[in-house]
């Protein structure tokens, strides 16, 4: 579904990503792990076309994304949920969802606010509340719901677990698993190894802008020494 090869990215003169290769199959959930500053968020931003200078090839659903603007990538089926949530704080929950609304993908039921409120019952109680007056967890749910309104085929999730209370974390994991069960492909950037393990089948690990490990998630989970070498802080 998504094939990335030889991806390099720069912020100004700083060379951030080097020769990144990634592959995600239909319905697959892939974790992108790595320490702070490894380049996980930059990878997602590069996929969305939000990094000024990028080289390499990105093929999505048989289409070359090179040169496409962010909105065209979103329309092609990439659903991006950014790290810092970026909720429109002056807009209500329903209005935030409206911004994300796109026509359904053929053969898939369209996401509606009502279906999303079933997935995130908390949001149902605050339809008219401005995004700026929600808790961090609620905002995280809204950010995901807003992206789902675009009926994406692949979700790019940037640290959805960050700053969530344990109970909310369970809820979030449950929701993402449900999405996966519906056939949505997922690329999940995470620092929370346990959370990623609840969702993902495959693990990539990044360090200093390069992919330094790839393999089944279970294998990395079982090999404590390797895990510590790659991820311990």
């Amino acid at each position: 579904m998504l094939a990335v090869s030889g991806l390099d990215a720069w912020y100004g003169a700083a060379h951030i990503l080097r020769d990144v290769d990634l592959a995600i199959g239909a319905g697959e959930a892939v974790a992108l792990l790595g320490r702070n500053g490894a380049g996980k968020s930059t990878t997602l931003r590069a996929l969305m076309g939000l990094v000024p200078r990028v080289t390499g090839t990105i093929t999505f659903a048989g289409r070359d994304l090179a040169g496409l603007e962010p909105h065209a990538r979103a329309r092609a089926g990439l659903g991006y949920v950014p790290e810092d949530r970026r909720i429109f704080s002056d807009l209500t929950v329903l209005e935030n969802l409206e911004v994300g609304r796109r026509p359904p993908r053929p053969g898939h039921p369209a996401w509606t606010p009502e279906r999303l409120f079933d997935l995130f019952p908390n949001l149902a109680e605050m339809r008219r509340r401005p995004g700026g007056r929600m808790s961090g967890g609620e905002q995280q749910m809204l950010a995901l719901a807003r992206t789902l309104m675009g009926n994406p085929a692949l979700l790019l999730l940037d640290e959805p677990s960050e700053g969530l209370a344990p109970r909310i974390l369970e809820q979030m994991a449950g929701a993402v698993r449900a999405l996966k069960a519906e056939g949505l492909a997922i690329l999940l950037c995470e620092q929370n190894f346990r959370f990623a393990g609840l969702i993902c089948d495959t693990a990539y690990v990044m360090a200093r802008g390069e992919i330094v490990h790839r393999g089944p998630f279970a294998e990395l989970a079982a090999d404590e020494a390797r895990r510590d070498a790659l991820l311990a802080v």
């Binding site: 939000l50 962010p70 909105h71 950014p82 429109f88 002056d90 911004v99 994300g100």
Partner: peptide
């Protein structure tokens, strides 16, 4: 409020 996010949502 946030143009880039609006674009990333397909607008």
């Amino acid at each position: 409020q946030d143009r880039e996010m609006v674009a990333a949502l397909g607008v």
